[in-house]
Design a binder for these strands. Structure first.
Lengths: 140, 140
DNA sequence: CAGCATCCTACGGGATACTG
DNA sequence: CAGTATCCCGTAGGATGCTG
């Protein structure tokens, strides 16, 4: 379980732990934590970029542009920079006369892979979703 | 690895599999799959609701309203209904003279817990993020 | 109690043009 | 090559009021 399940109707915040004291979350802190994590991934192109960088691939700006034709320069740079300041992506500048900038994942960014895999697996396990039958307890 | 890593510069879509044929993803389908999954979780209140329902808790509308004071009725109902049609939440209507509607997670919804846990763990492992030093390969 | 309807605003993100 | 700068628009989501 993610958070302490020991709660009765006297449901105050049982043991709020400041942060990074992993092992104990309340509903609120757990939700907030996941929200924080998701915010880092929100953005139309973040995931696409991420999946192009997974596996230690190092790509320069123009490589990414070519790999993701639908993205605009503005968006590409914007999302890359955000992920950089979030510590997910590493930006490597080579000072040359035709500029050369490469992007790669940080170790932490690379560590996202299994987490995303869990989501992917969850999504794949989706049942056919029945066409609005039952779920009506009238007969009880 | 999430997707087949066997790609050379001849990087066409190596084996695009229609769906739910888990075990083989390209960068594109993997990214799209995760995007799909994340779309189900996007929404200012989805996670908060989710974490209140985790653990098999069954709550009626007014319970959720009280548990999440900051949410408006409109938003609460909207996100609940979306999660319902997405197959994450189960809506249980009791036909009574003061109406009574309860919400609970589906099995699939409950199965989200470990995936979100993975994200939470990842987020908790975030390194201090150094104040913009290095990462400049000028000296090479 | 458990909603639906309407109005309104902030902002993510697309298109386009320019630059060190 | 690797960006920055403007303009513009769709939509998520807040506030408020009404109803079976």
């Amino acid at each position: 379980m993610l958070y302490s399940e020991k709660m009765t109707s006297t449901d105050k915040k049982v043991r709020y732990l400041p942060k990074s004291e992993q092992g104990a979350y309340t509903r609120e802190t757990a939700a907030a934590g996941v929200e924080q994590a998701l915010k880092l991934l929100e953005g139309r192109w973040k995931l696409v970029i991420l999946f192009h960088l997974f596996g230690g691939h190092v790509m320069r700006f123009s490589d990414l542009e070519r790999a993701i034709p639908a993205v605009s320069q503005k968006m590409l740079i914007q999302q890359l920079r955000q992920m950089e300041k979030d510590g997910i992506v590493r930006r490597i500048v080579h000072h040359q006369v035709p500029p050369k900038v490469e992007y790669a994942l940080t170790d932490w960014g690379q560590a996202l892979c299994p987490a995303l895999d869990a989501l992917l697996t969850w999504a794949a396990d989706r049942p056919p979703l029945e066409t609005s039958a039952a779920t009506d307890e009238t007969a009880q």
